[in-house]
Design a protein around this nucleic acid. Structure first.
Lengths: 82, 82, 82, 82
DNA sequence: CATGAAAAAGAAGCGC
DNA sequence: GCGCTTCTTTTTCATG
């Protein structure tokens, strides 16, 4: 008998793949929900890119946000910006 | 009073953002789960990239898969590959 | 004779692929140069991420930059940020 | 006088940024060229995705290529594919 | 070396 | 329907 991986090994691989496929589907479903919310927001006149920016900022602590901004301002000053 | 967006409008924006943040967390959680399964599989000796490839192939119908392969083979022939 | 694409067609494909490969190499070479400049800048004490941010800002016109910032501020106000 | 970085330091930063910007433009220009070649190829009836695949394969040594393929075949066998 | 961020590539959705 | 932009995923790169 020609054997390409033991049966046990094959079953294991199949299970791994199936678990990943299932989780991937769930993830895609949530992604769809997110898309729907953005669409709703856009329909109410909100800007998608700005909403994303807000979410990004909300993920930072105030301290980190301020620190970043100050260094950036220093650099921008070298270009006469702001 | 200086007003930047009505209160109603502000509340609406907050709700949109919160919904997106919640969904995003759920998505990230599932992504972590996927990562864990890959890690498990890797610990059992399976190759991550190949598993991804398998999943990609399983998403195609056999007909499409074969078609793609044949076109690729035709192209490779121009380079004397295979 | 079994023929998979005419000779002329095959040569054409080969030329397209070679052109893309050459251009891709050139691109990679420039990317290396960029990497080197960042390394130099870092050696002089500059922060890589902030330099990137500066470059991003410099790509915008002042008008667009200001417009974006104002909309963002409006949105952030809804969350009591800034 | 309030000083945010010495003049010398500021000039240095400006030079670094300008060098990166120039290189980045060159890189973008080449990327455009690549896009053009793909467009030409498509106009001649070639498939973009397959061309990419060919290029990827050509970057591998034959040994690596074969190894990869064999591992994939082994995995696919667990699903009764091929 | 392994983790996490950033860039590039690839895929998808949108608008014309 | 097709190109074009945007979003996702992959790979790469820097840092601890």
């Amino acid at each position: 008998m020609t054997q390409v991986g033991s049966n046990a090994s094959q079953e294991q691989l199949v299970l791994f793949v199936q678990r990943i496929e299932t989780l991937t589907e769930e993830k895609a479903s949530i992604q769809d929900d997110i898309k729907d919310v953005f669409a709703e927001a856009k329909a109410m006149g909100y800007d998608r890119a700005t909403i994303r920016e807000v979410i990004k900022i909300r993920k930072m602590t105030p301290a980190v946000r301020q620190e970043r901004q100050e260094l950036l301002d220093t650099y921008l000053a070298a270009f006469g910006i702001d």
